[in-house]
Design a protein around this nucleic acid. Structure first.
Length: 801
DNA sequence: GAGTTTGAAACT
DNA sequence: CAGTTTCAAACTC
């Protein structure tokens, strides 16, 4: 038991755990130690807050933390109690299971301090952010562990870690726990079931491990296992529920399945979509979560949020389980975020499993796949050795997977669901860059987990695109034109990118697929395509080259502030202007009224940054609307001018709102992510992320493009360098692409552009310039705040334009 | 489906 | 950095 688990965990955590007093403590634990567990939980909780505070990322929601805490404390505790109480009852099995799990949870929680820390350190350095994650872990691992770490990941990492720890704990710890339980004698009856479950967990691990194994080195397994564990936890919740419900063995089996599925994580679910069904069948709770997932996939993130909220509402009454479900759902959501990174892997894993773990996905792939794969290797299939590329392409994978294996289990279906998730919520079905959509989709998940609303908004953007994938085009490969038209007409968006490249070999930004960070797939009618899994190296190399020229080349062209919608409220929704085009358009003949215009295509108004002529962009004219990006850009270019412009343009509520939203986003994010260490990064993240400038660098890149991940794995040792690079990069980005507003902020702070969230918000007093009442000091505040970070750069004194 | 238009990307 | 070319999407017929 130990070995596999250890291998899964990556060794360090497990070994530590064994050696750690915690392990002994666990063994010594009496079956009825919920209280202790609670204590441990409390300790954990106490620990968590710090962590959360540290990691607080825009994505990471305080809610999550709270939920998490709640779950640990209340849910677990109650569970423990309930479990203990139930032990006597016929539900011993379930109760025992619950108790065991609870104990696990507690143990895990306890470990979380040690293990989590280690894990976090190893996998993700919470404070350090994403970049840190990669440090120790091999690239694949990074991906696995929540590669996307960038902003979200770290949070997740932390939070997830906790959860993960819990999850993992069961797997790894379970044996220990079992032993303790056995010693305690009270759990004997439960053991049988537990063993059953345990095998399941093992299976999970195996599944995960197998898949990951292919992709990831042994060390990575640990990370993977964690994620899987996290997912498993979600499953556990249900399993517990099963226990509670005293469902028959089938339930266990189902739970096992669900666990397995979950083990893959929401990613899998998201990608595959299978799990939801299973989960639903298994547990009502899970059903809820699953439903949420489905809903997300099916409809929109908002729905998800709603579902979550509703769940909370419903669950809020008491049930630990409910809380657990919520947590689970959240976890799953969190998983989804990871899914960005993991989705591919998860899918690949499933595929592998399906394929009998043949690393060569193509070979292993069923004939169907093969046929489908003809054009392009799909990430899902790819997994094998290259792993990274496949992972990177998860978006594509999702799309492809759905397409590829319509027949293959639910994976495909799930994948579709996931894809569909992003659905076309946005007013503009298709955003400009498919990449965005994809990346966004990922982020959406993540965001959904963390900041529900805000994230949702972001997701919407992406969703618009992603849905496309789900919708349809899947199997039927119509000519690219038709497909595109579909996307145009319908919800379908660019999510399913189909290119028709003939000369670029799909290795240039001309290629939508490539630009979107996705491998070309069947639907593509490209010629001489190199944007295939088979040519991963070429793709990556090309990508690097392009990135070397323009780090933001693969960043989403249109950035929408997630929060804007919320903060903005209806208005925000009404005004697509909340989003902006990264670079702005250069339209001359289309008047920005056709899709030739990227701004229009992206459903965003033109901004100052646009160089268009005769702009009539329905979403916002360059002049009239000072889209966030434009404003920022302008600020960067001409701070004073920009300010003046803003003043001059106070009219546009949309603009202001947008700016405000941005600010809010920034501020919120900044606030959340305030760790001293992170401050720098966070600020960067914020600036990039919020500004929509893709954080090319390690942190940001995660969410963005799959390839980026692969291309830029970071190691702890590299962290310092990363910081350095980030700073430089950030500066560059800010200079180059970052909105001027950011620049303004950043520019003053020459060194690190760390913005303390506090300051962002704190810095209310803006120069008269800035502040249009409407602006609410959003941007400007942010700007100020960003530079304000004294800590890192020491540029305390910033200047506001 | 073929051809044209358009503007981004790439190149010089 | 500006101008030109290349490219593929968007659009029209």
């Amino acid at each position: 038991m130990d070995t596999p688990e250890r291998s899964k965990i990556g060794g360090t955590p497990v070994s530590k755990f064994e050696d750690s007093p915690v392990f002994n403590f666990i063994n010594s634990l009496s079956p009825i130690q919920p209280v202790k567990s609670v204590d441990s939980v409390h300790s954990v909780q106490s620990y968590l807050p710090s962590v959360s505070s540290i990691f607080a990322s825009p994505h990471a929601n305080p809610q999550r933390e709270s939920r998490f805490l709640i779950r640990n404390s209340s849910s677990d505790f109650s569970k423990d109690e309930s479990s203990s109480d139930n032990v006597d009852e016929s539900n011993l099995c379930t109760g025992v299971l619950n108790a065991v799990r609870l104990s696990r949870c507690t143990v895990i929680a306890r470990e979380s301090c040690s293990i989590i820390c280690s894990l976090n350190e190893a996998t993700v350095d919470p404070p350090d952010e994403c970049s840190t994650l990669p440090s120790n872990v091999p690239q694949p691992e990074q991906y696995n562990s929540g590669s996307p770490n960038h902003n979200t990941t770290p949070w997740y990492g932390i939070k997830m870690d906790v959860k993960l720890d819990i999850d993992h704990a069961p797997v790894e710890l379970v044996p220990f726990v079992q032993n303790g339980l056995d010693k305690r004698k009270s759990l004997l009856a439960s053991e049988s079931e537990f063993l059953e479950n345990y095998p399941l967990e093992q299976n999970k691990d195996e599944v995960v491990g197998c898949n990951w194994v292919n992709l990831i080195p042994d060390n990575a397994d640990g990370l993977l296992s964690f994620d899987s564990n996290n997912e498993s936890e979600a499953c556990k919740g249900p399993s517990e529920e099963l226990g509670d419900s005293s469902k028959p063995a089938e339930g266990l089996d189902n739970s096992h399945k669900t666990q397995l599925d979950e083990s893959f994580g929401p990613c899998v679910k998201n990608a595959a979509g299978d799990p939801p069904v299973i989960c639903s069948a298994e547990n009502g709770k899970e059903d809820e979560t699953d439903h949420t997932l489905q809903i997300l996939s099916g409809t929109c993130q908002k729905q998800v949020l709603l579902s979550d909220q509703t769940q909370k509402m419903a669950n809020g009454t008491s049930d630990q389980i409910q809380s657990g479900h919520k947590v689970d759902s959240q976890q799953q959501r969190g998983m989804r975020r990871r899914c960005l990174v993991f989705d591919m892997a998860g899918i690949s894993k499933k595929n592998l499993q399906n394929n009998s773990y043949h690393h060569s996905s193509s070979s292993s792939l069923s004939d169907e796949k093969m046929a489908s794969d003809d054009k392009c290797s799909r990430p899902g299939t790819s997994q094998a050795p290259c792993v990274l590329p496949g992972i990177g392409l998860h978006l594509n994978t999702l799309a492809t997977t759905s397409k590829e294996r319509p027949g293959t289990k639910e994976m495909l279906a799930s994948g579709k669901e996931l894809i569909s998730m992003p659905c076309p919520v946005g007013p503009f079905g298709p955003t400009t860059s498919g990449w965005k959509g994809k990346s966004l989709a990922v982020e959406k998940d993540a965001s959904s987990t963390g900041n529900e609303v805000q994230n949702l908004h972001i997701m919407h953007d992406d969703a618009s695109q992603s849905p496309v994938l789900g919708n349809g085009e899947e199997l039927n490969q119509v000519s690219p034109k038709k497909k595109r038209r579909k996307s145009e007409n319908g919800v379908e968006s660019e999510a399913c990118k189909r290119c028709n490249c003939k000369k670029s070999k799909c290795l240039k930004l001309y290629c939508e697929c490539f630009a979107a960070g996705v491998y070309c797939s069947e639907p593509c009618s490209c010629q001489g395509c190199f944007n295939k899994l088979i040519h991963v190296e070429t793709v990556l190399a090309t990508r690097k080259q392009i990135e070397s020229r323009n780090p933001l080349a693969f960043a989403p062209k249109v950035i929408r502030t997630s929060e804007t919608g919320q903060e903005m409220g209806e208005d925000a929704n009404k005004t697509p202007a909340s989003a902006r085009h990264k670079r702005g358009c250069n339209c001359k003949k289309s008047s920005c009224l056709k899709k030739y215009c990227e701004c229009y295509q992206g459903g965003v108004g033109c901004s100052i940054s646009c160089r268009c002529e005769g702009c009539k962009n329905a979403f916002g004219r360059k002049e009239g609307i000072v889209p966030i990006g434009a404003e920022e850009i302008d600020q960067g270019e001409d701070k004073t001018d920009h300010c003046e412009r803003d003043k001059d343009k106070p009219d546009d509520d949309g603009q202001q709102h947008a700016s405000v939203q941005i600010d809010d986003n920034h501020s919120s994010e900044g606030v959340l992510s305030v760790t001293p260490l992170e401050t720098c990064r966070p600020s960067v993240k914020l600036s990039f992320f919020s500004s929509a400038k893709p954080p090319r660098s390690s942190t940001l890149s995660v969410g963005l493009s799959p390839w980026l991940y692969t291309s830029q794995p970071f190691r702890k040792s590299e962290i310092p360098l990363l910081h350095h690079k980030l700073e430089k990069h950030v500066n560059n980005v800010l200079e180059d692409d970052t909105p001027d507003a950011l620049r303004c902020d950043a520019s003053p702070s020459n060194g690190v552009k760390t913005a303390s969230p506090n300051r962002k918000r704190v810095s209310p007093p803006h120069n008269g310039i800035e502040l249009l009442p409407s602006c609410k000091g959003g941007r400007k505040v942010i700007l100020k705040s960003i530079p304000s970070f004294p800590s890192l750069t020491g540029d305390v004194s910033e200047d506001y334009p």
